[in-house]
């Protein structure tokens, strides 16, 4: 057995040295290679995940901002529309008001002028009545050739007559 091992080149010390060598190598590589590299890979993975998340977040924010912008724009448009409609309504109302006031005024003026005219007509009529009465009296005086003694009696009589005429004349 020992000779066979010797011929195969197996010897205890060399075997042991290889084992020790491997273990030392493993410890060193673990210290200098695996841990730093794996840590680095882990860190990089985290960073990539982080930045991906950031990208997603910022793109979400951009979408959100876009939405917000659209909303604000829409609102502004609606408001503008409202203002326009409101102003149109206001203008319509004011115009209406002005028109109705003008109409009112016109009506007032017309009424007043009518009243005036009526009053004038009344006064003219009264005047005319008075003059006619006077004329009638004077005519009657002239016709009778004398002045009635009872002038006031005369006047009353004529007026009564005229009122009678005016009442039936209507």
């Amino acid at each position: 057995m020992g000779e066979v091992l010797g011929q195969l080149g197996i010897s205890g010390p060399l075997l042991l040295s290889q084992i020790v060598n491997f273990v030392i190598l493993m410890v060193l590589l673990r210290l200098f290679l695996y841990q730093p590299v794996l840590n680095m890979l882990e860190k990089r993975k985290e960073r990539i995940a982080q930045s991906l998340m950031d990208v997603e977040r910022s793109s979400n924010a951009a979408v959100e901002a876009e939405k917000e912008r659209a909303k604000i724009l829409e609102e502004a448009r609606r408001e503008a529309q409202e203002v326009r409609a409101q102003s149109a309504r206001d203008a319509e109302r004011i115009a209406q008001e002005i028109r109705s006031r003008a109409e009112q005024e016109a009506t007032d003026i017309r009424m007043k002028s009518q009243a005036d005219a009526e009053a004038q007509v009344q006064s003219v009529l009264a005047d005319a009545k008075k003059q006619i009465a006077d004329l009638a009296i004077s005519a009657t005086e002239q016709l009778l050739g004398r002045e009635l003694q009872n002038r006031s009696e005369q006047e009353r009589f004529v007026n009564e007559y005229l009122a009678q005429q005016g009442g039936s004349g209507k």
Binding site: L8, G9, I10, S11, L14, L15, L16, S17, Q18, I19, N21, F22
Partner: peptide, 9 residues
């Protein structure tokens, strides 16, 4: 190519 190494491993 040395059995010591392969056996060691």
């Amino acid at each position: 190519a040395d059995l010591n190494m392969t056996f060691g491993l």
